[in-house]
Simulated scan of single mutants.
Amino acid sequence: MKDFITGFQFLTRIPIVSQSEWSTESFGRSVKFFPIIGGIIGLLLFGFVYIVQYLGGGKVPIHAMAIGVVIIEIFLTGGLHCDGLMDTVDGVFSGRPRERMLEIMKDSRVGAFGAMAFSLLILVKYSLIMDIEPMILPYALLVMPIVGRIAVVIGITLYPYARANGLGKVFYDCSHRQTLYVAGISAIVLLVPLGKVAMMSGVLGIAMSFVFCQYVSKKLGGLTGDVYGAIIELTEIVALLVFIP
């Protein structure tokens, strides 16, 4: 339970317990719970849309609801994964040697590529939410975070880490194939009851994860914590795409 709480409070900004000290082993062991944590995030997004659609009596404009979903997701995660996407794009697309790419990604400042990537991310998510049929939108938003979290478990467990240290390396060092098996079973248990489209969303999201991890790993010689965040954001987009009619 302690490992689950560690992962939950790292991946979200929802306070469960007041804790100032965290063990590296607990961080690493929390990886197997990522899909379940994604499911909780999905339930919160599901609940928001349900309240807007049904209890709001259809009076809330669809574009306001879409903006609300995007804002709430960023609020729930603290923008952690968005920051990872921006840093990854700044480094990988800089055209510099590997070591310089890693230095750019470590820089706290956001470059032009990162800013453009974040803007496009928000625009694409907003557009996809607008295009999904209202009746299935809550289910799409429930599936999206689950797919994003099982995708990042693949990156953590199957690809080397590009740096000698860093918070992301804690996840890599303490995770094994068994972590992937447990997380994979959890994701299947969560997605199967939601139907064929949910399962297809998971399959395509995982495929996207492999393609992206392979590409970045060749560039950097492995992955980093920032790349982990980018994996989540990109696979969430793929997950939503499947629900477009």
Score class of each variant (00 low, 15 high):
I16D: 01
A66V: 03
I14D: 02
I67W: 11
I67L: 15
G42I: 08
L43A: 08
L55Q: 09
R98A: 04
M86K: 09
Y54H: 13
T88G: 03
P15D: 12
P15R: 08
T24C: 00
F113P: 00
I62D: 12
L80E: 07
S26F: 04
F33G: 00
G7C: 08
G47V: 13
E25L: 10
I40Y: 06
F48K: 04
G39P: 06
F10C: 00
T88N: 06
V70T: 12
G91C: 09
T24W: 02
Q53V: 00
T24Y: 05
A112I: 15
G57N: 05
F34N: 03
I5N: 05
V31R: 04
A117H: 07
F33I: 02
G56K: 07
S94W: 04
A115H: 02
Q9I: 06
D90H: 08
R96Y: 10
E25F: 04
I71K: 00
S26Q: 13
L11W: 09
P35C: 06
M101L: 06
L11Y: 13
I74Q: 07
E73D: 15
I72C: 00
R109H: 15
S108E: 14
L45M: 14
R98H: 07
M105Y: 14
F33E: 00
G7W: 14
V69T: 06
G68H: 00
I72F: 14
S20I: 10
I67N: 01
G47W: 08
G47S: 12
L11E: 05
K106H: 09
G79R: 10
F113V: 07
V110Q: 03
F46S: 03
S119M: 15
S23L: 11
V31K: 04
F10S: 00
R13Q: 13
E25W: 03
I104L: 07
A66H: 01
R100D: 12
F34H: 04
V110D: 01
F48Q: 09
G78H: 10
H63T: 14
C82L: 15
L121V: 03
V31I: 15
